[in-house]
Design a protein around this nucleic acid. Structure first.
Length: 423
DNA sequence: TTAGGGTTAG
């Protein structure tokens, strides 16, 4: 069944890519990340795919009407997309597109897929455990005469390396150069280097850097960030300055990721002075620290028992031009709980929930447990109220509270009911 | 104009 009007390869790729934004809580600061909206409005392609794929074979004649509807919806929804926003659902939503593509070729009915289109689908297929789906998309790509690019190679290599299948990644790299004439670029090399470091082959990773130089492949900041991070994780911080020097000789400037790798390295050694110096250097060099830069320090301070200092840095974020994100809250909250700072933790929890961020169940449960054991009924009420406001008061937590309260006679029944009513 | 890598927790 043909669609009434075909779209360009560019538009088709954009439509596919745009699907990743459907579940971003961009319209409501009160939507808790990690909590899936039960019925997205308007009905998205993702939800339609789920409805159809759950009870019928995709591409089968009986669901052709649904596919038409889906594709129509796809066209209608593009205007409201936010291409740069991200969401935990991103890979899942595009992944839902892959299977029907392989089996029904419906993409073709809607436009002419180009390399970019297939690369997006291959990337989505890489979200699953094995590479079977990705291979199917690749086979289809080849059968349609679409030539793979260095992006296709980079996507597959990345998947293999992140699964620690480094040997296969190297085989693919060599094979593609021979068979498809696709040359590996810095994206490919960075993945390979990270993969090698992940299996303890740092010497080989550095050897790849030399290979890039030999083959006149442009080195970039990501390649150096990978190696710097690996050196610091291996406790070889003495070699970092040499790499930074070499980096500058090749005309690569350290970026936020490079600096973050260094901050992480210093924090691991509890050298917070050095970590703060990196922050200052970033500002001096016009490279704005991001959430990761601060979260790494906050987390390390908490783990080192310096929860008060972590809290100070956290409170200082707005002045530094960066609001705390969900991880900043979670890390500080965990740290405060770990060190028994229940009052501060309860305050951060309430603010976190007010901001629309979901705490981890295990953490909040443990806090409530601690307060029950302490018999701190006042703070217990505050925490339960916060959890209730965010609709994140888990049934098990509530059961534990009731059981403890009844056993210890900490509160009278009417107080409990009052708290419950607030929910 | 669209696609891929490198830096935080659990």
């Amino acid at each position: 069944m043909k669609a009434s009007k075909l779209v360009s390869p560019f538009r088709l790729s954009s439509l596919l890519r745009g699907q990743r934004t459907q579940f971003s809580p961009c319209n409501s600061s009160k939507t808790l990340p990690g909590f899936k909206p039960s019925i997205p409005k308007p009905l998205s392609l993702f939800s339609l795919l789920h409805m159809t794929s759950s009870f019928t074979k995709l591409g089968a004649p009986e669901c052709s009407t649904n596919w038409e509807q889906i594709l129509h919806q796809l066209k209608q929804e593009t205007r409201s997309l936010h291409p740069k926003s991200s969401s935990a659902m991103s890979s899942h939503s595009t992944a839902a597109l892959v299977s029907p593509t392989v089996h029904s070729n419906w993409v073709e009915d809607y436009g002419t897929p180009d390399a970019c289109t297939y690369n997006i689908l291959i990337k989505a297929a890489c979200g699953s455990e094995d590479l079977d789906n990705a291979c199917k998309v690749f086979d289809e790509m080849r059968s349609k005469g679409v030539h793979p690019t260095d992006v296709t190679l980079g996507t597959l290599i990345h998947k293999l390396c992140s699964s620690l299948r480094v040997k296969e990644a190297f085989e693919l790299k060599d094979q593609w150069e021979r068979v498809h004439g696709v040359l590996p670029n810095a994206f490919v090399y960075a993945s390979l280097m990270k993969g090698l470091c992940g299996i303890g082959e740092m010497t080989l990773a550095f050897g790849l850097k030399e290979e890039m130089v030999r083959k006149s492949i442009q080195l970039d900041s990501a390649v150096y960030s990978t190696l710097i991070s690996a050196l610091l994780k291996a406790g070889r911080k003495g070699e970092v300055s040499g790499l930074l020097k070499e980096m500058s000789e090749y005309g690569c400037k350290p970026n936020t990721v490079t600096y973050n790798a260094m901050i992480h390295g210093y924090c691991k050694e509890k050298d917070f002075e050095a970590a703060y110096r990196v922050l200052d250097e970033m500002v001096e060099k016009g490279c704005k620290p991001d959430a990761i830069s601060y979260n790494v320090i906050i987390d390390a301070l908490c783990k080192a028992g310096k929860w008060s200092e972590a809290n100070l840095l956290f409170q200082d974020l707005p002045r530094r031009g960066r609001n705390p994100d969900v991880l900043s809250y979670r890390m500080l909250f965990s740290g405060l709980c770990d060190w028994g700072q229940f009052k501060e933790a309860a305050f951060i929890l309430d603010e976190m929930i007010f901001m629309g961020y979901a705490p981890h169940y295990a953490r909040t449960h443990k806090l409530v447990e601690g307060l029950c054991q302490e018999g701190n009924t006042e703070l217990l009420g505050t925490v339960l109220s916060s959890l209730g406001k965010g609709n994140v008061l888990h049934g098990d937590t509530w059961k534990m509270v009731i059981s403890t309260v009844c056993k210890e006679k900490l509160l009278n029944v009417s107080e409990l009911v009052d708290t419950l009513i607030v929910q």
